[in-house]
């Protein structure tokens, strides 16, 4: 079908492998996401806390710097342990959530609003691959601000403090990695599910915010009324904080336990998948 021929011709060339075809979606979407200056600014700002912690780790491992302040009690200022990483990750889940709030609601709603789902699904491309492709967009962005920076700081500390420190604190690395992924998947699926059910992007973003805020609010009320702790199971923030505490080996703080936190996130994830399963169809059928 060369331009000069202006004639229909069948394609007989090579075909890409089916397994990796879902990557086409994030490849196109990431370009669009980074075309927004506002998003790029926020994305860059989300790295500041990690950079500050990184600077702190570097300075506290720097003999020249410590020699300037001989009376400095390093452990009292910044103990580089599970607690530090827990605080960092507990903070980093917020920018990650905001990124999901900015990007997520437009991912599916845009396709539904313009009826483009039949175009995806009329090709050798399944609904699962579509969801995987869309989730990958958020997973990439959220990974940058959570486990990638977390593990980079862990690697920096391991490099500066030595192999012994690394071997003693391997739990931190695995905790950061697993906890971040639980958060990424939960938030991504929640964002996609709401994007699929609410076609108007700002409303979908508002709904997502409401799900999180009302969950935290009602969780607090239930806990206060019934003198229990598992009321927080309707709050994904309470859930992820409990998961990070458990995974990073911190003592139980009286809130949600790590398994219940994990259950909370899995529950939200499963519910989001169910919503996606119900909504993501080439055409809706009214029985």
């Amino acid at each position: 079908m060369a331009v000069y021929e202006r004639r229909y011709k069948r394609y007989e060339g090579e075909i890409t492998p089916q397994r990796g075809r879902f990557w086409v979606i994030p490849r196109y979407a990431i370009k669009d996401v980074f075309s927004s200056k506002l998003f790029v600014t926020f994305f860059a700002l989300s790295f500041i806390p990690s950079l500050l912690v990184g600077a702190g780790i570097y300075l506290l491992n720097n003999a020249d710097f410590l020699a300037i302040f001989p009376e400095l009690q390093v452990d009292q200022i910044l103990a580089i342990d599970g607690s530090l990483f827990n605080n960092l990750m507990s903070f980093q889940i917020w920018p990650a959530f905001i990124i999901a709030l900015i990007v997520g609601p437009g991912l599916v709603s845009k396709d539904l609003a313009n009826n483009s789902l039949p175009l995806y699904l009329s090709r050798p491309f399944s609904r699962a691959e579509y969801v995987l492709g869309k989730t990958t967009i958020l997973a990439f962005l959220l990974s940058c601000t959570t486990w990638v920076t977390g593990l980079a700081l862990f690697a920096l500390q391991s490099n500066l403090a030595g192999l012994d420190w690394m071997m003693e604190n391997l739990r931190i690395a695995s905790g950061v990695f697993i906890g971040s992924w639980l958060w990424i998947l939960t938030v991504s699926l929640l964002a996609l599910a709401l994007s699929a059910w609410v076609k108007w992007r700002p409303v979908a973003a508002f709904m997502m915010l409401m799900v999180v805020l009302t969950g935290s609010f009602f969780g607090f009320i239930i806990n206060a009324l019934f003198k229990i702790q598992w009321g927080s199971m309707i709050s994904i923030f309470a859930g992820i904080k409990a998961v990070f505490r458990g995974l990073l080996g911190l003592p139980f703080d009286g809130g949600l336990s790590a398994p219940l936190g994990c259950l909370t996130l899995l529950g939200f994830g499963a519910l989001s998948l169910l919503l996606l399963h119900l909504k993501l169809r080439a055409y809706e059928v009214v029985s």
Binding site: T16, Q18, K110, D111, A113, N114, P124
Partner: peptide, 25 residues
């Protein structure tokens, strides 16, 4: 398809290219 179907915010060539890649090109 019968109804309007496209991806908003995309140029025609980018849209058609995306569809071709999803088909395996």
């Amino acid at each position: 398809p019968e109804r309007d179907s496209f991806i908003a915010g995309m140029t025609a060539v980018r849209f058609i290219c995306l569809m071709a890649e999803l088909s395996g090109l």
